[in-house]
Design a protein around this nucleic acid. Structure first.
Lengths: 146, 146
DNA sequence: GCGAGCATGCGCATCGGGGTCCCGGCAGAG
DNA sequence: CTCTGCCGGGACCCCGATGCGCATGCTCGC
């Protein structure tokens, strides 16, 4: 993992369809050498996979809701059960275990043709051990926010 | 944009390296027809591009910090200046204009070899019109969180 | 109401480009 | 000196890209 590998990772993170030749000329290698680097990065696990980036419209114009969750207690079993149930809730895009007041922060993508009330009920019923649940709505997404 | 197109978008969002043949057999089309669909989706703007997904280690083991920002006022000019400066701050991965107490929510990726204090100063000095700034740290990222 | 014409989307065939793999060369370390 | 790791170059093959003919369904005019 040298400077060239990092450059290749940066380039592929921006556009994974770059050809071996294009990669080669940007990092100063031949196409075959650049391609070998890529294969090695895939096999080492540095590159997890390749994804298409979709437009907002294609994703159903979702809006983002941040949900702060407080559990009934902080025993290992409670947290584990919560996290396990979370992994099977496709509405939740990202989850963070937080320091400070609330225990977890969930980033939920709500499609514009869904009502948040339904999502709220669904999340509450699917997740065990929830004591309190505070939702924070976005008006607009400026940057990133897949 | 019919059911087949949506299926194709779902599949490519998961793995953009699926071949025309693989796509075709999963949506019930010939390879060429599936490929034509993909090209059309690219040209219509539904597919914005293709990206490599990198491992946490390859990204420098960043941890996520959520920063709640309150501006000095809510005049159009103040918000515009803030947003404009934000667009040129690469540390900030995502930005949301929020309803409720704080005005903006920033998702900041801090590389493990950076100190947050430096980031904090950098953000404060780069962004105009900030009145209050509350940071919320993550202990662990469970799911997603690109 | 009905038929002709056109548009849309399919499968099949073909062509070119890039992925893939092997080989030979070279530099650095032991 | 030899071995190892990495590079460049070339051959092969598969996949992406595109043109062609055909079926289906819709529209418009009679």
């Amino acid at each position: 993992m040298d400077r060239i590998d990092r450059k290749i990772l940066d380039l592929l993170a921006g556009d994974s369809r770059l050809t071996g030749e294009q990669l080669g000329e940007r990092v100063g290698l031949s196409p075959s050498a650049a391609h070998r680097r890529v294969k090695a990065l895939e096999e080492s696990g540095a590159i997890l996979g390749y994804r298409a980036r979709l437009s907002n419209a294609a994703r159903g114009n979702p809006s983002t809701v941040f949900v702060h969750v407080t559990l009934t207690d902080q025993r290992q079993a409670t947290m584990l059960a919560f996290e396990k149930a979370l992994a099977q809730t496709p509405l939740v895009a990202e989850t963070y275990l937080m320091s400070g007041e609330s225990d977890y922060l969930l980033k939920v993508l709500v499609r514009s043709d869904d009502s948040y009330e339904r999502i709220h009920r669904e999340i509450l019923s699917a997740l065990p051990g929830v004591q309190r649940l505070v939702s924070q709505f976005t008006i607009r997404t400026l940057n990133g926010g897949e």
